[in-house]
Each structure stands twice: as C-alpha cells, then as structure tokens.
Design a protein around this nucleic acid. Sequence first.
DNA 1: TCGGGAATTGAAGAAGGCTTCAACTTGTGG
DNA 2: CCACAAGTTGAAGCCTTCTTCAATTCCCGA
Lengths: 116, 116
Amino acid sequence: MQRVPLYQAKAEFFRMLGHPVRIRVLELLQEGPKPVRDLLADLEAEPSSLSQQLAVLRRSGIVVSAREGSTVVYSLAGADVADLLRAARRILTELLAGQQGLLDELREAERGARLM
Amino acid sequence: MQRVPLYQAKAEFFRMLGHPVRIRVLELLQEGPKPVRDLLADLEAEPSSLSQQLAVLRRSGIVVSAREGSTVVYSLAGADVADLLRAARRILTELLAGQQGLLDELREAERGARLM
DNA sequence: TCGGGAATTGAAGAAGGCTTCAACTTGTGG
DNA sequence: CCACAAGTTGAAGCCTTCTTCAATTCCCGA
C-alpha cells in the first residue's frame, strides 16, 4: 500500500483543485449539501460538463453523491476544505498584490525608457 | 484591472501547484533560500526540466530568483506557503484514509459476494 | 579572450485534460 | 407500459502541459 510518493499525491490533489468549476463547486458545497440542479443554476455550465467535473471531484474522494428520488445531491466528504481555501486566498492576495507592484514598476520603467 | 474572476485565479494558482517537482521545490525552499545546484541534487531531475518548473513558479510570483556569482539562488517570495501545505496535507490524509476505508469495504463486499 | 560550468530558453513530440455530442441509466408521472 | 426529466458516461477533437534536446547566456578562472 501507499506506493505513490507523498509529493506526487499532493501534486495530484492540487491538480484536482485546478479548475474553475471544481473550485466553485467546493465553495458552494461549503454551505451544505446541494442537488446538481442548484449547482447547475449557480454555475451556468453545461450539464454534461458539470457532470464531468463532479466525477473528477468524486474520484478524488473530496465529495460524495447520493441519489434522492429523481435528483442527485452532492456534499463535501467531511473534509475541511475551508482552511485550505482560506490559506490559498491569503497567498493569492499576496501574489496579486505583488503583480500589481510589478506592473507599477513596469510603468515606471517605461516612463524612464521614453526619456532615453 | 482584476479582469480575471477570482475563482479562475484560484484555479490557476492550484494548477501551478499541481506538479511533483514544483511541490518539492516549495517544500525545500521553506527551509530557506537555495541555489539551483542544491535543488538539482535533492530532486534528481534533469537540469532543464527543473529549470522549466522553476520558470513556472517564477511566473506565478511565488518564488524569486537572484543571481549570485555563477549560481542562481531561489527563495519563496515572502508568501506563507507552510499554512497552505499543512491544510493540504490534512485533507489529503483524510482522503487517503477514506480510500483505505473504501478498500476495506470493497474487500467486505467481495467476501459477501462469494457467499451469494 | 578563450574555455568550461551553471542555468535558462525555444522548439518538437508525446501525453493528459477539457468541452461537446450522442447515447444511456434511473426514477416519476400519465 | 410509455414518455419525459435528471444526471451520467464514452468517445472525438482540440488545446495545454510535460519532457527532452540542442542552442544560448552569463560568469569565472586560466
């Protein structure tokens, strides 16, 4: 067992998160279980496209689905995703601020260049 | 400015993390700045392959590089990556445990099936 | 200034992921 | 039982990413 190196499992985990629809689904499910119909309405995505992304999340084990009558309800598989997304948002904010700073520098540089 | 939806920026961020070598580089850099030579030794990767992955990290802004004499030194761009990796590890542990549990269930099911 | 080591870059081919379409499964109501 | 709605699945085509090779840049010492 555990034949996959840990850093590879981590990489696969992050790759699993690396899609806009999947991120939004995880965010939505933090409010509680939701039927596919609701996700579909919130995300404005094609049913089959959403289904594909839900399948990716399901395979990873981070969400589970349950049939209820004629609809299917998804929920987080207990995992505490909030912490992760919070940490990501913190770093992301830093990075975007940094890029803003970089842009300022570039503008400066260009202003300088015009004078040369 | 900020024309990219936030959930898309998040997705790109996670995709940036989604590679074994990039994960390991970030982990190594948490100990402090490191010359490429050291990373190369620790990772057992081809120089040009590592360079490509370092370029991805650099473009995202999560690391910075500085030339020191004939070598190049990389370091985290201030971002607190530790929190993120910690949160990821927590969830990952849960998920792997879950898969272990699933395996147990499957074994159970198979045992049951033999009796039918 | 020439040679050599360190690291990066660009490009090509292979591999993997995404979107979309059509086909299918499952449940519900007539 | 039939038809329809809700989701899922498989496959095809496309686009992105990964690996690798060769070429290049930068710096140091002879």
